[in-house]
Design a protein around this nucleic acid. Structure first.
Lengths: 236, 236
DNA sequence: TAAGACGTTAAACGCATGTTTAAGTTAAGT
DNA sequence: ACTTAACTTAAACATGCGTTTAACGTCTTA
């Protein structure tokens, strides 16, 4: 009837779903699941609110889809594998992984790292509803990281010490992301500039490698042999 | 008119404020500021909802009061000072501090540690509204902790390396609290039992001391002089 | 062209939240 | 006894949320 409503069908139908998905990644990673609202997601996507229900059912399904979508085309695993391929020395690979993760996690406006930031945000505020999706999205990265740490230690990835060290490293990196706001108050000189990010990354690498390499040296059978991954036979 | 409403004035007037405060500590530290509701706080306290407004003004002022109240009568600083007094060796003090913090932070039903848990929960989800209170509540612990780390390193508490190492340790401890739910899925054997808590604490101490002691040894001028605070000299 | 599926829209619904109100009860002061 | 202030109560209010509705436009198909 009234022609004042302008409809634009110029975009393909599937575009709306994608726009919502990308907007959801941004909003979810910025505010977390609870604080994020479907209204803001719709606003960022430039679509109607009801389309969340139409395309995804409800907010929770949209979030689940975001987690799957994010972990699919993600660079998380790529960073890890790339770092491992580029560096024969697992210590250097570790250093590169730490720097890459820290850069992505602290990058504000970048699309890169949104997925990791999203995970980190939700890890602290878990819910039984989506913890399964979070786990399956995190699992590959966690396992690959354990392999790298295990290589340095000369221990299998399932070893308790390997896991403890892995979490020690993850915890250090995550801390600078979690505590960033209060950190800038307790330590005003720390502005998280690119140069400072690199300094932090190198510190975390040095800090961690001090223990890792010392422990490797303690294991006589592996100290000079099984550091590398590509050697034919693995353990003890 | 109708006498079916039973009023109990048995409790002193100030008791209600205290009950609300204690209930608020519990609820806030369990769910965080946003998820916590004044209805649940009132229910836990056994008081009326409107009393939050009467005694504190609104939810935010109640939270601010909780942070101040928690940091006042808190054992956070006591643990630090006690650990430092009991141990002439700052390395042992560090180990004790780590274990104490981890035990408090993971204790579920204890009143002890609620304050620290509250801080940790809010650090990840900051807001300009209460970041000032959080900072002043955290500052003493942060500074004292830096002193201990600085003693081990043989560096002043303001040194960049001291700060980086302090955050490396804090990050490791905080990680096991933040990531606890997803951790139990990625590492099912980790149930956070008291024995495992102690194992983790010792690992974090060993992991951190490997770097701290190696760095102390690198500083020639202080490696044999300024390590200790009380005893005149200390070993490399 | 007619019909139906698909996509979109504005508006409203139901609910939980923080907040406020107006009345009520108790204790102390005079 | 009367007044006043402090404290408490049940109920309502205003808001923002996720969700739903009913109508409408657009495209495909027969």
């Amino acid at each position: 009837m009234k022609a004042k409503i302008v409809h634009r069908m110029a975009t393909a139908p599937e575009d709306t779903r994608d726009k919502l998905l990308k907007a959801a990644i941004q909003v979810f990673s910025e505010h977390g699941y609870e604080r994020a609202t479907v209204r803001e997601i719709s606003r960022v996507a430039g679509t109607n609110i009801a389309l969340v229900k139409y395309h995804f059912g409800d907010k929770l399904e949209l979030f689940r889809e975001v987690v799957r979508y994010a972990s699919d085309a993600d660079a998380k695993l790529a960073v890890l594998t790339q770092a491992r391929k580029e560096n024969a020395d697992p210590c250097e690979a570790l250093r590169q992984i730490i720097r890459g993760a820290l850069e992505r996690l602290t990058a504000r406006r970048e699309q890169t790292g949104l997925q990791l930031r999203l995970m980190l945000k939700e890890i602290a505020n878990p819910s039984n509803a989506w913890i399964v999706e979070i786990e399956s999205a995190l699992r590959p990265t966690y396992d690959q990281f354990r392999v790298v740490v295990g290589q340095i230690l000369g221990l299998p990835m399932g070893d308790t010490k390997t896991r403890l060290c892995t979490h020690s490293i993850i915890g250090q990196v995550a801390h600078y992301v979690h505590a960033r706001p209060i950190l800038s108050r307790l330590w005003p000189e720390m502005q998280m500039s690119p140069a400072q990010i690199e300094m932090i990354a190198n510190h975390i690498a040095d800090f961690s490698l001090a223990y890792l390499q010392a422990e490797r040296a303690k294991i006589p059978a592996r100290s000079a042999k099984k550091v590398q991954k590509k050697s034919p036979r693995k353990r003890t």
